[in-house]
Nucleic acid binder design. Sequence first.
DNA 1: AATTAACATTGATTTATATCAACTTATTTA
DNA 2: TAAATAAGTTGATATAAATCAATGTTAATT
Lengths: 229, 229
Amino acid sequence: MKVNKEISCYTCENKCDIYDVLEHNATDLLNVKPVHVTFKKNEIICKQGNNVTHGIYIVSGTAKLLIEGINHRYIILHILKPHNYVGLLSFFESHKYLYSVYALEECKVCMVDIGFIKNLYRENRQFLCKLNEAFGKSVAMIMKKLITLNQKNIRGRFADSLLYLAELNKSKSFNLLLTRKELGEFCAISEENIVRLLSEFKNEKIIDVNKKHINIIDEVLLRKISEVG
Amino acid sequence: MKVNKEISCYTCENKCDIYDVLEHNATDLLNVKPVHVTFKKNEIICKQGNNVTHGIYIVSGTAKLLIEGINHRYIILHILKPHNYVGLLSFFESHKYLYSVYALEECKVCMVDIGFIKNLYRENRQFLCKLNEAFGKSVAMIMKKLITLNQKNIRGRFADSLLYLAELNKSKSFNLLLTRKELGEFCAISEENIVRLLSEFKNEKIIDVNKKHINIIDEVLLRKISEVG
DNA sequence: AATTAACATTGATTTATATCAACTTATTTA
DNA sequence: TAAATAAGTTGATATAAATCAATGTTAATT
């Protein structure tokens, strides 16, 4: 973890919603005082149960957002990429993170004091709406996950995850940053069964797998499986 | 479903957050134009996928909030009682309900135009905070449900639900408004296994069951089961 | 370069839970 | 009040998916 306070929104190459909103207000922009922090692979960006002190915005890299359940078992809810907010969900609720975020590869994030964000939220209607919208989407997504994990069989869940990752990477061919175990935590399947499903889908000519690289060959069929299992 | 528009917040016996917030603003209070609607048992109060047109507040009765999943299978998320809001979660997200609400017994609700609520939300800081807080709690609750349904065995899940219902009714002895099937939809257990669990827990002297009436005898043990399954 | 640790794979076995089937008891509806 | 429908119950059976165990492969560390 490496901290850099010597940055300014004016010269930032990764302008975020906050900048967009403040663009016309020089005084506020001067007060933002953003901090860039670089996390190495596997480092904790935020930890479930800890106080929410900052709004966090992914500048570069990839991270996993997970809830820590019983007996050190996890459910990965999201894979975060640049321009995603971390801590959104927790912002509304009390003051503790409801989940943890870990870097899957080197990650640079921009942190803004939560007090500043709350003020902005209260005073700026545009910001309020943007944040609400993003928040609403997260909730919709969790509810969808609840249905998926509960009512689909492992083939359906697995297909869902592959489609999610393809969309995330904006390509049918992508590099898996997750281990087999983590992929399991993403669709609530045991590590062993993930391995079996990978070769099963490969045999059925639905995907191509080579170590960490996945290529979706038959997207139509994958969508069908996601629906009917 | 029976509608009554002849009501006024001034004389209402079930003053809600909206009233509290508007108390000092006579003009707004005149503009609220609330509508009271009475739903009979099993009637739909709001339907997943429909447009969100009103903020809904439970005045009397009990309702179930559920998400409709695959092949007409449901997951009941909440049991709603007086002073709960319906439609909270959906307010932020797009304009469609993410879930349905059905009356479990005769229910009277108060409906306020969503436009009015959105205005209030934007203009009144106190209301904003109240709504955000309630919203955050819902999210925390759904995430807890996600873990529970995924990582606990049926005994643990069943114990959880009994504890939830006791808390809801503010008593260890309560009348179940849910059928065995619905209780199953609440903890993602088949109807048959719900029946088996009821008699299992009865035999183990953890609860007393008589048709729809449940009495929790050994709360300590029930909490233990909820933790370790 | 050698050793260790993390990650991945495969087959066999177990188990928790759903499903099926048959039946009883309540609650509506005609 | 009978007939029909819904709700509840019980035991037997099936099965999806986890777990266990053994082993191979890759990556990290001394």
